[in-house]
Amino acid sequence: MLCKEVEELVTALSDNELAGPERIVVERHLADCPDCRSLYQQQVALKQVIRRAAAEMKAPLELREKILNDRRVFPPRVVTGPEPRPWASVFTRPALALALLVLVLLPVIYLMRPQSPSLALAAIETHDKITRGEVTVIRGDSPEAIKEILVRSVAGEFAPMGYDLSMMNLKPVAGTVQTFDGRRVLVALYQGDGGSLTCYTLVGTERDAPPRAQAFFDADKNMTFYSYSVGRTNAVLHREGGLICILVSAMPMPDLLALARSKAAPSHS
């Protein structure tokens, strides 16, 4: 049998979807043909890579909240009475309603535990890991090169906030992309005599600021800056249009806040 005729069956075999005579034919061919054996191994390896990637992808907390707040999914109360109402009848089918309820609620309860990881706090953690060399970053020859890599990694959907921090003796040296709760975050690392600073850009809203962050309203720019810290690491979050920017550094909070304020561009100007 020709390799060409077997190739598709090799795929099916890697999915364990081959039985009977087809399976025997393919297994016999594989025993004799190194090329098709290699194709088989390749298919298995590809499948594993995709599965591993799938395991990394989790529904964002924001989505769970949306579903929980969707009155079509979870009506505020079950109406009962002489007139059968639509929602009353849903719950006469407890199997589905309960299944959906449990499936959505369990993860939410899990995530609402006090130690629930928030994206804003994860940024601080990532900063610390990057400065300790625990996160692999992509070194770029120029700020433009770093920016280009980051933009491409999110298929051009958005670009990292780029700041000229040369006055602080900081210049962009590397970048990386992280995923938090299924959201992609572009990370640019600035380094220099002024220490190190990481800048996080992601699609988001001001709800991404930690609840206990200190809000500072800049009347001139008509923007709010949220500052928060973990240990000695400080962070300032603000929104520019549909993007959230988080600056993280060990520099003193007043300096970091001043830096964010001086560089931020108001959305409407």
């Binding site: 990637a53 992808m57 992509i138 491409r152 992309v177 995923t179």
Partner: peptide, 19 residues
């Protein structure tokens, strides 16, 4: 796909390639 990007979240790569 971004062959010069050394390491990203795997899922980002896969989603990009699938896309």
């Amino acid at each position: 796909p971004d062959s010069h990007v050394l390491r990203q979240e795997l899922s980002v790569q896969i989603t990009g390639a699938l896309g």
